[in-house]
Design a binder for these strands. Structure first.
Lengths: 401, 401
DNA sequence: TTATTAAGTCAAACTTCTTGACTTAAATGT
DNA sequence: ACATTTAAGTCAAGAAGTTTGACTTAATAA
């Protein structure tokens, strides 16, 4: 009679959840504001001084925060500010791109402490994963030598690769990573490293990087346009990264734009891939990347051509995401050569008037973010840190018994 | 020396927050699954039987849940399921449209218990608010007569009107509600009624209605396209309504679509307003609405004309929101005459292939929702219920001391 | 008739936050 | 100089809420 019935429900919470949330809130408050005293933290979090004292004591014992010099300067007992301890936690981030992979280690503050890059071997994900596991092994050994505690303080492994995920194989030439998409990447690398592993698309990783250390620091609503080999958007909505029901949210590269003729996907004209094609370069090799940088600095007229068209599409894309997401700001970020990104950014102004043109806004409608080839790997590494230390709804819920 | 320094931080939480969350989780579990026993609730929420017992006792004392007949049929002591008590809470919802206003009262289950409609007087929001306050007064008196407890169980007042909000006055003829936009509506009606009052745009309200009682029941990721005088999208992202940084998220009516010629806003061709214009009808009077319904049923060729064009745009809009939000499903809802909405829905197939065409999906990519003129008012009324009873991150946080 | 299973209760323990009084230490005012 | 004021931070007891483990109740199955 008692068939297995699935009951849809959210988890409840208990005192552990309370305390975990409060610890996270303290860490985030310090991250956002810089060093804060216990009294500051009590005011900011609305908790009592006593509670803050207890929690700070715990965080200090765990090596996540440390006191600074006593600050005098006002009436009353001088305060003791607490700062985050960068060595309190570490995380690894791996970017898997079409032809190469990048690996970084970051600390609790999101600062890079190690990096490595390698070309992906032919042989697809099986060989690729072996290589990645070797790189990780080497980096962990190196880290353990330099910072012995780091071995016990690795929060996890973040992976980032181009989306979209979970689709039926297609013949669209723009991604060519179907093999990787179908491969059990998270399971393989989790098993191979013993680390908590998660996967997101490159645009989301880029937004994570911007949130940790870039233009989206402290913002609750921002769209981070990732301009790389393809184009996508990383979404910060309501203070958290949003990835949709299947991690494919923000794939604006697949949105159909009309430009005179029939509608076609944005990334067919606004992406590094499209530029390589326009220039007749072999796609996405390191040489092509360097060549684009060189020609951009030389003001190659074919680059200027492409820029005009891409900028027109990008203006429309900005208008679209502003209209749809109502963000505080839009960030142009990505892994394009920096001079190219700057020229594209400049060519996007003036922006199309939109709902974002409101009286009294303080942030610019569009700003530049972290640009450069390491943005995605850094964002991938930021993800385990966020998971472990940022205040999130899911962090208070009881997990599977 | 101590200048007022603002510290950016989220609130902490305490045992009250824990308990409040757990009560909400119980209510939501029953709402989603139907009556559940204490043992069921313990399993579903991962709380202990004892905790559930304590909380259910409290909820029963507060008149929010009630026990049903004992259920026999398995081994062991028979279970006592608990259901929600509809009369446990009530809320009012007001839709403010261009020429009229609708008022409904709903109960804890989101069922309508009273309705009223009136034309808005000339004289703008000052006179309009007076009228609305009179309508509310009458309805509250009526409710108090019919259900005496309702007076003490009013969770609040939800308002919905067309967006976008907070923009500088424009000369775009499509909204014409600039006066209302600039008016301190929430403050006026909160003061006039003494109720907790909130405002959202009509598309968001529509999504709230779908979530409470319609096609989005229990979904965590859904886009509800509101097809009315204008067009917009209500967003359910990560289990919560998302409204952006200025309540203007989802305003897809302002997204620029190219259809052969220069890009123009979606709602210029896909909205009731555009149909009224196409038919040469005086905009948005009750007669125009009835006339459209009549002509639709008569298969008026001019309606069919318009339908073909609107459906093409809507297909593209669906493709866009699927690509950008990666939702579990897209819902077509709104306040169009039902026959028209059905024909538009049918004309949208086949949909443009998109990322949403994934192997193994269970929900349809596009489905019909609540259609009809009362959807927005019902959704407006659903908002205070949601605020008071749904599990939300912000519900666990300590509020201003 | 007995064994088994499952729902639900009881009372004590445990965790965590709160309260209010108290201590410490600096700047300010006379 | 010295008392006063202000603010940071601690102490110890209390309060709120969940957990634990033993127990009771009541049904079906053997």
């Amino acid at each position: 009679m008692n068939e297995l019935r699935t009951i849809r429900a959210k988890s409840g919470t208990n005192q552990e959840g309370t305390s975990a949330h409060n610890r996270r809130v303290i860490i985030e408050a310090i991250r956002l504001n810089g060093p804060l005293s216990r009294a500051d933290l009590a005011r900011a979090t609305r908790l009592t001084k006593q509670t803050i004292s207890n929690l700070v004591e715990g965080l200090e014992a765990d090596g996540l925060v440390a006191s600074e010099e006593v600050v005098r300067g006002g009436r009353g007992q001088p305060s003791t500010p607490y700062r985050l301890v960068p060595e309190g936690a570490f995380a690894l981030g791996v970017q898997i791109d079409r032809h190469l992979t990048r690996l970084v280690a970051v600390d609790l503050m999101g600062q890079e402490v190690a990096r490595a890059v390698a070309n992906l071997p032919p042989g697809g994900p099986v060989e690729g994963c072996k290589l990645i596991l070797r790189l990780i092994e080497t980096m962990r050994a190196d880290l353990t030598r330099r910072i012995p505690e780091s071995a016990h303080r690795l929060a996890g492994l973040g992976l980032a690769m181009p989306g979209p995920f979970g689709l039926a194989p297609s013949d669209d030439e723009t991604w060519m990573m179907a093999e990787w998409q179908a491969f059990p990447l998270v399971e393989t690398l989790a098993a191979g490293t013993g680390l908590a592993t998660s996967l997101q698309n490159d645009a989301t990783a880029c937004a994570a990087a911007e949130r940790m250390n870039g233009s989206a620091d402290g913002l609750d609503h921002a769209v981070c346009i990732y301009f790389g080999y393809g184009i996508g958007a990383g979404l910060i909505l309501g203070g958290e990264l949003y990835t949709g029901s299947n991690r494919n949210a923000g794939e604006i590269g697949m949105v159909l734009f009309s430009r005179g003729g029939a509608p076609s996907p944005l990334e067919h004209r606004s992406s590094l891939a499209s530029l390589f094609q326009h220039l007749g370069l072999d796609s996405a090799t390191t040489e092509a990347y360097a060549e684009v940088e060189r020609r951009t600095l030389a003001d190659d007229p074919r680059i200027l051509d492409w820029l005009a068209g891409a900028a027109a599409d990008m203006r429309q894309a900005v208008h679209m995401v502003e209209t749809i997401f109502d963000p505080q700001t839009v960030i142009l970020s990505g892994s394009a050569p920096e001079p190219l990104a700057k020229r594209l950014f400049d060519a996007m102004f003036p922006l199309i008037p939109s709902n974002a043109d409101r009286p009294g806004r303080t942030l610019p409608r569009l700003q530049l973010g972290m640009i450069g080839p390491w943005a995605v790997a850094l964002g991938a590494a930021a993800e385990p840190i966020r998971r472990a230390f940022d205040p999130r709804f899911s962090a208070i819920l009881k997990t599977a018994s």
